[in-house]
Write a protein that binds this DNA or RNA. Structure first.
Length: 275
DNA sequence: CCCCAGGTAGGCT
DNA sequence: AGCCTACATGGG
């Protein structure tokens, strides 16, 4: 699937890796299109994704970090074959539409901050707020700003977060950053999905949906199915018309897709949101 | 003026 | 436990 050549990762075919699908499916907010190349940022690191006719080349100083970040050891061909076995008309359409999606393995801290901002918000505004937070509290790198550390960002006050567009979420952010100072993320990684969700929803600004996004994108948990306005619309348009609340819809999908729930959710989200 | 955006907190049954 | 509504902000 991939090989390494000095400072580069080479993705040998484009069957299971499409930069646009990966970056524009709502799991990451720090990336940009520079000419024809996507540039992606994670914590204090940066990678450029160059598309060729039959392959991708990823340029970065942090090869091993981005091999893990893009989850290159996982066979998405198999995941898609397993999802096609559900023989669901709409999931099949969604997979064919976003066939190059991969779920990124991102920083739990960056996911917590980012998805608190995401609640009842729109993607351009979420991106803009996060960028301003990095510029104000992140370390200056060559030609970009790192995502702030917890120590750095917990110095920011409510007025700062309001000034970068968080609105009423500003006070949640201040309180959650203080709470995170007592958290050991390595211990959280050992928790069951159910117990990890219980811990996450104790954070201010984190409910079921945000917790599930944090677990899917930050803790590598695929047995969750975040329900937002788009995946709720998938349920109501393509499964059963409006007879359940968001928690019940999430339970329905997880019972149905089990340990493939997170993958199914991401194909369906991208399909419904982009079409 | 309205409605919407990767929903949640707090208050009410 | 489950339902209801206010909530900053900017864009269509």
């Amino acid at each position: 699937m991939y090989k390494i050549d000095k400072q580069k990762i080479i993705i040998e075919n484009k069957n299971d890796f499409i930069a646009k699908h990966i970056l524009e499916c709502g799991q990451i907010f720090r990336y940009e299109l520079q000419n024809n190349d996507y540039v992606v940022y994670s914590l204090d690191k940066k990678a450029k994704i160059i598309e060729n006719e039959n392959c991708y080349i990823i340029e970065t100083k942090d090869i091993n970090y981005f091999i893990d970040f893009f989850d290159l050891a996982t066979d998405y061909g198999k995941i898609k074959r397993d999802l096609f076995k559900f023989n669901n008309e709409f999931l099949n359409k969604a997979i064919n539409f976003g066939y190059g999606i991969r779920i990124l393995k991102q920083s739990p801290f960056e996911m917590i901050v980012s998805f608190i901002i995401s609640a009842n918000n729109n993607i351009p505004r979420i991106k803009a707020s996060i960028k301003k937070i990095c510029e104000a509290y992140g370390e200056k790198m060559d030609d970009y700003y790192a995502f702030p550390t917890l120590d750095a960002l917990s110095c920011a006050d409510e007025n700062f977060f309001k000034s970068v567009g968080l609105g009423y979420r500003a006070s949640y952010m201040v309180e959650t950053l203080q709470m995170l100072k007592t958290v050991d993320f390595d211990k959280w990684r050992e928790l069951s999905t159910e117990n990890l969700r219980k811990e996450l929803v104790k954070l201010k600004g984190v409910g079921r949906k945000v917790a599930d996004c944090i677990m899917l994108f930050g803790f590598n948990r695929a047995e969750v199915f975040p329900i937002d306005t788009w995946t709720k619309k998938v349920y109501e348009d393509n499964f059963f018309a409006g007879d359940k609340n968001n928690n019940q819809i999430a339970t329905y999908f997880v019972d149905y897709f089990r340990d493939l729930s997170g993958y199914a959710q991401q194909y369906l989200y991208y399909w419904k949101q982009k079409l």
